[in-house]
């Protein structure tokens, strides 16, 4: 397996220099280990700053750049000046890509020592693999996967590796429909419609800065909750499930939290304005909807 050039893209919004440094230091180590394994060629880490506040100071940028030297990676920093969201932010960063592989990674991720190594091995193991997702800890996503090949219904883009050529061929992420959430499920399903596989790589382990409440449920902010609800409705429209759309819309309106009610209202307006995404041909061959999940789950 010859060395591959790699672009790591991160769109950061609510961050501190300390959390960015934590992310970059762990990433540098993981890149270093992949380089030692002979898998990595030229590497660049591109950070897109989507925050509305003042950008990262020169000193902080320099600190990140220095930390990445150990991983043999160059560093670029682009300040968007406004919150572009996850999908558009990545599309914007990708405009200057000239690498073969593309790693999309959130800034609250702390990569395990062999995470990058294993993601590359997973993607290049078979030509039909188009997207590989890392094993997220401490709380795993419950979606089912083939225990041998790792094939799964969709991949989270919190930390996932794809082929840059494929990303370009598919037109990147659907920023027109999705802002922060849902773009990963959408990208996964479009990729599968194009004949590629989404796979899960259990040996590529990363830690996410996740918190849980007193009953063990993941903590989500109202903003996240609204975003997830909107994504759920948009996905059901785009992937030919108007019944699901109406049922969920009614559910969010009548029984949802305040954030979910807001999401339902926003989608109604969007519908009235004719701004809902058009259904995708062949959607029924890849799409799966069940109570807010997009794949069969191993546990709940």
């Amino acid at each position: 397996m010859p060395p591959s050039s790699l672009r790591v893209q991160t769109v950061a919004h609510a961050f501190t220099p300390a959390t960015l440094l934590r992310y970059v230091e762990a990433l540098a180590q993981s890149l270093h280990n992949a380089r030692v394994a002979g898998l990595l060629g030229a590497t660049v880490v591109a950070l897109g700053d989507s925050s509305e506040k003042a950008g990262l100071s020169k000193r902080a940028q320099e600190e990140l750049r220095e930390a990445l030297v150990y991983g043999g990676a160059d560093f670029t920093y682009e300040r968007f000046g406004r919150n572009l969201g996850h999908a558009e932010g990545h599309n914007r960063l990708f405009q200057t890509n000239d690498s073969e592989l593309l790693l999309l990674c959130n800034d609250d991720v702390v990569a395990g020592p062999v995470a990058v190594t294993e993601l590359i091995r997973g993607l290049l193991a078979r030509p039909e693999v188009g997207l590989v997702e890392a094993h997220q800890l401490p709380f795993e996503n419950p979606k089912a996967y083939d225990p041998v090949s790792g094939e799964t219904g969709w991949c989270s883009l919190a930390c996932a590796l794809t082929r840059a050529e494929l990303f370009a061929e598919l037109g990147g992420l659907d920023a027109e429909s999705f802002f922060v959430d849902g773009d990963d499920v959408d990208y996964s399903w479009r990729l599968r419609l194009a004949g590629y596989q989404c796979t899960y790589r259990p040996s590529a382990r990363v830690i996410l800065d996740q918190r849980v409440d007193g009953s063990g449920r993941l903590l989500v902010s109202p903003k996240n909750e609204r975003s997830v609800a909107e994504a759920d409705l948009l996905l059901s429209r785009k992937y030919g499930r108007p019944d699901h759309f109406e049922v969920r819309l009614a559910f969010y309106s009548e029984h949802g939290s305040e954030a979910q009610r807001e999401a339902a209202e926003a989608l109604r307006e969007r519908k009235a304005e004719g701004r809902l995404p058009s259904p995708v041909a062949g959607a029924d061959t890849v799409a799966f909807f069940r109570d807010g999940s997009y794949a069969v789950e191993r546990f709940s």
Binding site: F139, V148, S149, G150, S203, V212, S215, F299
Partner: peptide, 23 residues
């Protein structure tokens, strides 16, 4: 807390979460 179990994959062996998280 949650339960985990040993697993074998194409890419090696390890472990996986097999149940929901509780307190």
């Amino acid at each position: 807390t949650h339960s985990i179990d040993e697993e074998s994959w194409e890419c090696g062996t390890g472990y996986s979460q097999i149940g929901p998280t509780t307190t």
